[in-house]
């Protein structure tokens, strides 16, 4: 009977959260510095970062998962558990996408802000920290909300490594009950609710951090 397995499926939400939270968090830590480097870095730095973005945006997620889980991590002498490996791969890839969200945001802040900061005697680093990023991060929230929605659903692919997230558990339930329709519908709705809830929260943050009176010219 399917309904008996619902709590088991719901527990998958926690694992999905771990994948999404870890992936987005790691992606943020990678993506923001990449964006700063791409905007303010020298030619060599930019070229190096371009290669990173080019690679992680170019290779399918499934290939990345297999490559790192079966190939890269064992080669480095650390065969990681599926959850950790998945979070790292999702993070590396999301970092590439997030970097482009942040880059666009930084570039739309306007050159006058940096010039004004420098004219006060701020160093470049200080100007980026106190003037550019507080504005760029606000601008980036809608794009970042999109990244959340995409990463959430991409995380389902981690079933291929046996991470006990929503889809993996759903497949076990299908096997156990011999029933496919209800379990997959349930899984689908779980993702819809998570997408809706998360984007709602981020929209509230966007509204709360809005600069009064300001309309960004992008």
């Amino acid at each position: 009977m399917f309904w008996a397995y619902v709590p088991y499926m719901l527990a998958g939400v926690l694992w999905t959260f771990a994948l999404v939270g870890g992936g987005l968090g790691l992606g943020f830590l990678i993506g923001l510095p990449i964006a700063i480097g791409q905007v303010y870095g020298g030619r060599v730095v930019k070229a190096f970062l371009d290669v990173y973005v080019w690679f992680f945006r170019g290779v399918p997620l499934l290939v990345l998962l297999f490559l790192f889980y079966w190939g890269v991590f064992p080669a480095l002498g650390h065969k990681l558990p599926a959850l950790e490996a998945s979070i790292i791969v999702l993070g590396l890839r999301s970092g590439a996408y997030q970097s482009q969200i942040f880059r666009g945001a930084i570039e739309s802040v306007g050159e006058g802000q940096m010039v004004a900061a420098r004219s006060l005697g701020m160093s470049r680093v200080s100007a980026i920290l106190h003037i550019i990023l507080p504005q760029a991060l606000r601008i980036a929230i809608p794009g970042w909300t999109n990244e959340y929605a995409i990463l959430l659903k991409d995380s389902a692919i981690c079933f291929t490594l046996g991470v006990l997230e929503i889809l993996t558990r759903t497949r076990y339930v299908v096997i156990a009950t011999g029933e496919a329709l209800l379990p997959y519908i349930t899984a689908g709705f779980l993702f819809i609710f998570l997408t809706y809830g998360g984007t709602k929260v981020l929209n509230v943050i966007y509204e709360k951090t809005r600069i009064p009176g300001l309309v960004w010219r992008m």
Binding site: G112, Q113, V115, A116, I131, R138
Partner: peptide, 14 residues
Amino acid sequence: RIGFVFQEFNLFNH
């Protein structure tokens, strides 16, 4: 020690 006032103001938006 050198003040600078811009044509476009360049106040910090945030």
